[in-house]
Design a protein around this nucleic acid. Structure first.
Length: 471
RNA sequence: GUCCCCAUCGUCUAGUCGGCCUAGGACACAGCCCUUUCAAGGCUGCGACACGGGUUCGAAUCCCGUUGGGGACGCCA
């Protein structure tokens, strides 16, 4: 039987880090086994589901490169099918109408809590014959009252649940719409899923779902419950831990492969290897090797991986993303300035994100409106006047505008003035970039081009002359 | 509270059937080297088997308990 996995988010917000990892694991497993990966949108809760969220999730999937073979399948379009199944269960006596009011249920739970019991529906409507006036009933599944349900989980191992612990869950709301535990079962069966890989938080739902599947005469798929991702305080990862949305990471300048690489190593390892190409992940990933324990999201390591990918990927590839970020900052490299590929080569060691690279490379594409205060104070002072003037002349005269030759000019200028190289290069750097940090000075000169260099040097010389009170 | 799950450096983890573990790697952190800025790079250091009982010639690895953490207990998914 060929492998079929799915990612089934509910569109009530963005695609978050945890969801992305679940999607990745499902995707990897399907790809590894030559199976199919299905995207299903669980939008049965029409109150909370939005098309906006659907779009954001789809956008994130595309950005991550997690392509799906089927879908997106919308549960909201399958209501007739769910209704049919609910009716079938009703007809077969495997489900029943419940007329309990919310107040009644609240009261029941309250008293169970005070008796230190697990709050659960006591099945009081199981044998009700007559409808109750003025109450639209929900439909409840008649869960077995004794025996056990065994989940042979691919990551947890064998987990046994007592049916006594389970109650008769609602499978249709009073307005007739189906609930999660019903739709997920119907779909996993209808769509012939072979492996359900999902978050740990669903482990407790699994025995209920298996019971419904059996009532429907279906065979449950293999389950794999992957551990949760926690925030640095040990609580479940959420917004208050900082960025949790996949698209937020895109916007902050992360490469999708870096995020994927980080995520695959959360709860899974292949010896001591830290960096994986997608092909390596597909080759070595196995759901059976996933850890049981929850892991803490570590932004610093993600950042390191991102930087690693920026430094070691093909500059052409990285430049593609840099262009996007430059665009976000209102710069179109097509309108002049250095080729972004060259900027990547010049900047990659010192920029951990593409956003940072774009910001720190802005001076190549447009004039800055002021110097960094500290940098100017330290470097653009009287002592820099002579070297800068001399450099101006040299740059005017030089024939080949290439890094080697430019480096030589700076070097010789320093020597001729009997100054250390830094004393010449650093003021020059501030004059050109506006701040104290830039790529090596020869590379910066080369990328900026002679015209801009002369223009900014002239401006800096003038600036020093005007502010020459300080020694 | 009840049920379920989990437990190796601060973090992610390696740890094949218990002996090769005086517990390895990576991130972070500290120091040194390199250096025209910032980086990158190189080297060194810091640092863990939660605790208590067993089983065994021998346990991070198996069993039990304790403690700690997480999850579930919705007409949410």
């Amino acid at each position: 039987m060929s492998v079929r996995t799915r990612f089934a988010p509910s569109p009530t917000g963005y695609l978050h880090i945890g969801g992305a990892r679940t999607a990745l694991f499902n995707w990897l497993y399907a790809r590894k086994h030559g199976g199919r990966f299905i995207l299903r949108i669980e939008d049965t809760d029409r109150e909370r589901s939005t098309t906006e969220s659907v779009n954001v999730i789809l956008e994130a999937m595309v950005w991550l490169g997690l392509d799906y073979d089927e879908g997106p399948i919308y549960q909201s379009e399958r209501f007739p099918r769910y209704r049919e199944v609910i009716q079938q269960l009703l007809d077969e006596g495997k489900a029943y109408h419940c007329y309990c009011t919310k107040e009644e249920l609240d009261e029941m739970r309250q008293s169970q809590m005070t008796r230190k019991e697990k709050p659960r529906y006591d099945g009081r409507c199981r044998h009700r014959q007559e409808p109750r006036e003025g109450v639209n009933p929900v439909v409840r599944f008649k869960n077995p009252t004794d025996g056990t349900v065994v989940v042979e989980d691919l990551v947890r191992g064998r987990v046994v649940f007592q049916n006594q612990e389970l109650d008769d869950l609602i499978i249709a709301r009073s307005d007739g719409t189906p609930t999660y535990n019903l739709t997920v079962v119907v779909d996993d069966l209808d769509m012939k899923m072979t492996h359900v890989i999902r978050g740990d938080d669903h482990l407790n739902n699994t025995p209920r779902q298996i019971n419904i599947m059996r009532a429907l005469g279906g065979e449950p798929p293999a389950y794999a419950h992957v551990p949760m991702i926690l925030g640095e305080d040990g609580a479940r990862l959420s917004k208050r831990h900082g960025a949790v949305s996949v698209l937020e990471y895109r916007d902050q300048g992360y490469l999708p492969e870096a995020l994927l690489n980080y995520l695959v190593r959360l709860g899974w390892a292949h010896g001591d290897q830290e960096v994986f190409t997608i092909d390596e992940m597909i080759e070595w990933f196995d759901i059976k090797d996933v850890n049981k324990s929850a892991s803490t999201f570590n932004p610093a390591k993600l950042l390191w991986l991102n930087h690693h990918y920026i430094m070691h990927s093909d500059p052409l590839h990285v430049a593609h993303y840099l262009r996007w970020h430059l665009g976000e900052l209102g710069v179109d490299p097509e309108n002049g300035g250095p080729d972004p590929v060259e900027v990547v080569k010049a900047q990659r060691e010192r920029c951990k994100t593409l956003r940072e690279m774009a910001e720190n490379s802005l001076f190549f594409y447009r004039d800055f409106d002021h110097y960094d205060e500290k940098a100017a104070k330290k470097n653009l002072k009287l002592a820099a006047l002579e070297p800068l003037r001399k450099l101006y002349q040299q740059f005017q005269a030089i024939e080949t505008w290439q890094p080697d030759a430019l480096h030589q000019v700076v070097q010789e200028t320093a020597e001729s003035l009997d100054m250390k190289l830094g004393k010449v290069a650093q003021p020059l750097r501030v004059a050109l970039s506006g701040c104290a940090v830039s790529p090596p000075i020869d590379v910066t000169l080369h990328l900026l081009g002679r015209d801009k260099v002369l223009e900014r040097l002239a401006f800096a010389i003038e600036y020093i002359e005007k502010n020459s009170d300080s020694p």
